[in-house]
Amino acid sequence: MSVAVHPNPSHGPQGAAVETEHGHEHDNGSLYVLGFWLFIIQDLILFSCLFATYLVMQGRTAGGPTPKELFDVPGFSWETFLLLTSSFTCGLATFQLRRGKAASTIGWLVVTVLLGLGFVGLEANEFVTNALEGATMQRSGFLSAFYTLVGTHGCHVSLGIGWVILLMIQLARRGVTPVTFRKVFIWSIYWHFLDIVWVFIYTAVYLNGLAR
């Protein structure tokens, strides 16, 4: 387990007040990291509202396909595997980042992005296949909730891919500086968070649907 090291060690003594000299440290990593955690927490609540809605609506199929009929086991298993693996490679990227190695950080980020793209591709494929079979969002309350929950996660993943591409450009140009370090570190929190959300989609949507 990692030892407590804050991403930007340029601060002085710790305590209630971190900022002493300036209103804004130029590369005040810990402030940004806290801010980003707070963003993650609001996202957590957002997803939990979507989960709550899905769980309330999963039985409301209005004569359309039920979860059991809809879910494609190999499909979502591969999606899960890709995303879990990408979370791992993302961890490796931050590992290299901490060692100050820009090139290998970028390397692992590229792998992560490819895995992420694979995930998004599979999901898009799943959605299109379902829709062509008539299981569209308009078919039932269950399907509205399903597409919205899973799709919101998919949008987050796609956004994460776009975002990290911007960061890779900056890493390539500037190397590992306190600022690029902080940016990539924050992105990695985002990516792992999406993995957590997916684990619950996997559990509460797919496995839950199949168990019934």
Binding site: M1, S2, A4, V5, H6, P7, N8, H11, Q14, G15, A16, V18, G29, S30, V33, L34, S87, F88, C90, G91, S188, I189, H192, F193, D195
Partner: peptide, 11 residues
């Protein structure tokens, strides 16, 4: 704990 470095913080 293994990936997100939850234990890390400044203060």
């Amino acid at each position: 704990f293994f990936f997100m470095h939850i234990t890390e913080s400044d203060g």
